[in-house]
Design a binder for these strands. Structure first.
Lengths: 225, 225
DNA sequence: GTCTATATAATGATAGAC
DNA sequence: GTCTATCATTATATAGAC
């Protein structure tokens, strides 16, 4: 397995540049990262970065491609099980894969061309996983499986995107074990027993959204934020 | 109520500049927005922007302050009910408040000094709302109320941060009614009945995380992403 | 493949007139 | 308060030597 840290000498320069770019783009963001900084991180000259990738934008595309291929494999077909397995691996060794996780989080919030494809793939994977688990009797059926998959997807990604905030709140460094341990059981608890004690709020919302032409109130969201 | 759109002439220049900055920072991000672009949006010269705010960074701080004061009020004390009420108002009229919602989402992902305070306030508000609802018998008690509040908070914010992705998936323009309507019932469904049919996965995780010194596996997250 | 040196454009910020 | 003109810095990207 290729290391995510940059140890100059063991890879060719173009790979070192790409890896350095992933680290810095993921850590500081695309705009805050200069070609010079990438060159310094990779131990090469700024000119070589452009020589290999043509432009900063092309380098970003190369990083997007690399990360998505690491996640999904070279095959264009979406393999939900491989994606889940790969994500598990990254999350299981955060110290090593943090740059890739950071880059992934950046991809999801900087809506680039690759961003939409990535989100669609994650959503599709969640959808098919939930379908399989529903068929296996593990997960409850849903009236709107697509919407449910979207909710589960964005909720899962939320911990990734806001991992810095969560780590700080839990007195942990950045996506450390303490945070993961602290979140796991309550998350599964929520997904097992829900939050509300009875159907009152759900039924109230159903009534409010029921067929009634003059009803265009903006749907009671009931403190879900 | 002050309008969030920029119609030059009805406000003093410094307010127009600040509002323009909120629009552009929220839409394009801090780094992609130049002082010149803000000046053009506000209908003033670039020099005036610096004259009023000293620097781009100070202008950003002023925007952070403005948005947080709009959310929480001028009082430093955290008032959960006011915050919830204000968020409802913004979400109920997305067309008007989109710039503020966008700016809010940017604040949460660009971890600035104000970002941590904002997140803490949102978390605290969620926590106290859940506490009140628990006491009222509406919400189930939790073994780890802080962790549960964190999960609910980031999950709620996830829809805000990834609203562009969600809108696209639901064939809607950007946080439109279709998306909100489509998400509301499944979200409440999830919060009412949960996702899993029984306790198997929860119990498996509890066992895996049970007191066992040699067990430092990275906690099975079971496809929540 | 890799470097140094440089061109060119855009940025944040300043100075001074009005 | 507001503008125009400009400075100094930094950015990406190019050119050509080795």
């Amino acid at each position: 397995m290729r290391s995510a840290s940059s140890s100059p000498g063991d890879r060719v320069a173009s790979a070192r540049i790409r890896d350095a770019a992933i680290v810095l783009f993921g850590r500081d963001g695309l705009e805050r990262t200069s070609v010079r900084a990438i060159a310094a991180e990779a131990g090469v000259s700024p000119g070589l970065v452009i020589h290999h990738f043509g432009s900063k934008e092309n380098l970003r595309d190369a990083c997007d491609l690399f990360i998505t291929e690491e996640l999904f494999g070279r095959k264009s077909a979406l393999d939900a099980s491989r994606l889940n397995e790969q994500l598990q691996r990254w999350l299981a060794d955060v110290d090593q894969f943090r740059p890739w996780l950071d880059y992934l989080a950046r991809m999801l919030i900087d809506d680039s061309p690759a961003s939409g494809r990535l989100f669609d793939a994650l959503l599709g994977s969640t959808r098919s996983t939930l379908d399989a688990q529903t068929e296996a009797g593990l997960v409850r059926p849903s009236d709107d499986p697509d919407a449910r998959a979207a909710i589960v997807t964005v909720s899962g990604l939320a911990s990734l995107i806001m991992s810095k905030q969560l780590s700080r709140v839990f007195g942990d460094d950045y996506f450390g074990d303490a945070m993961v341990r602290r979140m796991t059981i309550p998350t599964l608890e929520l997904y097992t027993h829900g939050l509300y004690r009875d159907d009152r709020i759900l039924e109230a919302a159903r009534t409010a959204l029921a067929p009634s032409p003059d009803n265009d109130r903006p749907t009671p969201k009931e403190n879900t934020a």
